[in-house]
Amino acid sequence: MNIFRLTGDLSHLAAIIILLLKIWKTRSCAGISGKSQILFALVFTTRYLDLLTSFISLYNTTMKVIYIGCAYATVYLIYMKFKATYDGNHDSFRMEFLVVPVGGLACLVNHDFSFLEILWTFSIYLESVAILPQLFMISKTGEAETITTHYLFFLGLYRALYLFNWIWRFYFEGFFDMIAIVAGMVQTILYCDFFYLYVTKGQGISL
């Protein structure tokens, strides 16, 4: 564990909590892409199946359970509890355009053609593009609530910090995982446009 990975995990946790609290407190998921949240729930489900097979550390297990729990709670709030406030017309990105190619790529490019490894690879590739429906929705509505921009900021920051974590691990441990690094770069690059607007605008954003 290093400072970049720890702050990255905390930034990710902050993003997840911010979103969940925003929906819960305002009793509304206006401006939130339910499809991105479904994809994130799928990312965590396929990546954290090893919860059932191996124990790494209390921190690791606790964070995985929190991530999965919050992801499904968010999907539940959007599609069940506050369904009336879900803006389905603007959340029109076709998820299958992401899941199918990512599934195919995970079968072609991976470290090991085993069940858990393919699922892990699928989740890494999917996470890199899972935010697209949300960014697409904001570009369609032309605006985002301030709290949503904070959510996106911390979510984008987490993987950027992970890139520094991988530099750190390569330098000090001689370890690197090309699949995670390339996907992490793609994921972070997708936020660049948003980061620019977030930093220059500060308040509500129009992509």
Binding site: D9, S54, I56, K64, H111, E117, F175, A180
Partner: peptide
């Protein structure tokens, strides 16, 4: 490389 090595990351 041993792919299981980085599974300590979230």
């Amino acid at each position: 490389d041993d792919p299981s090595r980085n599974k300590d990351e979230l």
